[in-house]
Design a protein around this nucleic acid. Structure first.
Lengths: 207, 207
DNA sequence: TGACAATACGAACCAGAACTCATATTCATT
DNA sequence: AATGAATATGAGTTCTGGTTCGTATTGTCA
C-alpha cells in the first residue's frame, strides 16, 4: 500500500525516442490522410512499433494529436510578437509594421498543409480542440490589443478591441486559405494586399 | 431490353414529402450532433421512416447533406449582390456600401450554427465538399470583382483582384466566427468595425 | 376483389477501427 | 547464468455504424 500510485500512470515516457517516433509518424500520417483517415494501427506501423506499444504511450489518437499541438504552441506567438513589438518601439511606419506582421504570421503557421487542415476541421467538431484553440486565440488577442494601445496616437480606429479581433481573424483566414486551398492569385500579391489592408484600416497615416 | 435503365435510379422522389421529412430531420440532427455524430439510422428514426426507406431515397449520408446544401445555394448570392449592385449604382458612399455588405452577408449566412460548423469542418476533410465550396467561392469572387470594377474611380486599392479576395475572405471569416464561436465582443460592434475596415481599405474617400 | 407493382420495413449481416491482455522479449542486477 | 522487472507484442474482443435484402404493407387497376 506504500506506492499504490505506480500503476496510475500507464502512459508516460518510458522510452523518450519511442514517443518521438510515434509523434513523428503521426504527424506524417495526419498530414497525408487526415485525422479520421489515420488509424492508431497505422501510426504504430509507421513508427515501427506494435499497437500495444502505441497504447502504452498514448491513451488514444486525440491525446497524441494534442501532444503534437502542444509542442508547437507558444514559441509561435512569442516569435511574432517579439519582432512586432520591436518594430513598434523603433517607430516603424504602419505599412512596415503590417508587412512584418504578415511575414511573421506566415512563417510561423504550420508548414504541413494537411496538418493545418486537421486543426481547422477539428476546431469545428471537437470540443477539446475548440477550447484549446480558443484559448490560444484569446492569448493572441490580448497581446495584439496591447500593441494597439501603444500605437493608439497613430491610429485612425477608435474601437481598438474590435479592431484587434477583426484584424486577427482576417489575417488568420487569409493566411490559412493561402496555405490550404489552391489559389488563383500568387501569394506575394495576396500578402501585399493583406498588409495594405491592415495599414489602411488601422493607421491615420500609413506611411 | 427496352428500358433496362429503370432500375438504375434506385433513389428518386417516389414520395416528395418523405424526401422532405428526411431532409428536415437531417438538418435538425446535423445541426445538433454534427455530421459524424449523426447516423443514417438516427435520421430515419427522426423522420419517422425505416432505415430501408432512407436508402431508397438517398444513396448515403453525404448525398443527403449535399442535397440539403444545394437547396440553400444560389438564392443567397443573388440576394446579396442584387442589393449591393443597386447601392453602387445609386452612388451610395463607401461606408454605406460596406454596411450593406455586412448586413447582407450576415442575413444570408446559415442560421443554424451547428450546420454551418458541419460545412466548415467538411470543407477541410471531404474533397467533394471542398470542390463544391470552392466553386461557390469562385462565383462570389467573380461578382465581387465586377462590382469593384464599376467602383474603380473611387477606390484607393490598385490590385482589385487581390482586394476582392482579401475582402471576401475577411468578411466570411468574421461573420463565421461571429455565428459559430462565443465572442467577447457584441455583434454590433464587430460588424461596425468590419464595415469600417472595408471602407477604409477600399475607398479613397469612404464618406 | 384479386392480382400485380410500388413502396416501406427492419433484422441481420459486414467491415473496420478502438482497445485489451496473456504471452514474449529485453535488460539490468546479482 | 539466473532472476525479476520493465517493456513490447499482436491476435482477439468489442463496438459501432453502414448497407443489404427477404418479407410485409399499401396502392392501383381490371
Amino acid at each position: 500500500m506504500s506506492n499504490e500510485k505506480a500503476t496510475r500512470t500507464p502512459r508516460q515516457a518510458r522510452s523518450i525516442e519511442k514517443r518521438r517516433r510515434l509523434m513523428d509518424a503521426a504527424m506524417r500520417l495526419f498530414d497525408r490522410d487526415g485525422f479520421e483517415g489515420t488509424t492508431a494501427k497505422a501510426v504504430a506501423r509507421e513508427a515501427g512499433v506494435s499497437i500495444g506499444t502505441f497504447y502504452a504511450y498514448f491513451s488514444d489518437k486525440k491525446e497524441l494529436l494534442m501532444d503534437i499541438l502542444a509542442e508547437h504552441t507558444g514559441e509561435v506567438h512569442h516569435l511574432v510578437f517579439g519582432k512586432l513589438g520591436d518594430a513598434v518601439r523603433d517607430g516603424a511606419s504602419g505599412r512596415e509594421i503590417m508587412r512584418l506582421a504578415v511575414a511573421a504570421g506566415h512563417a510561423t503557421h504550420w508548414q504541413p498543409p494537411g496538418l493545418l487542415r486537421v486543426l481547422l476541421a477539428l476546431r469545428h467538431t471537437d470540443d477539446d480542440m475548440r477550447r484549446f484553440q480558443e484559448a490560444e486565440e484569446r492569448a493572441l488577442l490580448t497581446r495584439l490589443h496591447a500593441i494597439l494601445k501603444i500605437l493608439a496616437p497613430r491610429l485612425r480606429v477608435t474601437d481598438r478591441e474590435a479592431a484587434a479581433f477583426i484584424l486577427a481573424t482576417a489575417f488568420e483566414a487569409v493566411l490559412h486559405s493561402a496555405i490550404v486551398f489552391e489559389q488563383d492569385i500568387e501569394r506575394e500579391r495576396l500578402f501585399d494586399a493583406l498588409a495594405d489592408m491592415g495599414a489602411a484600416y488601422l493607421f491615420a497615416d500609413p506611411d
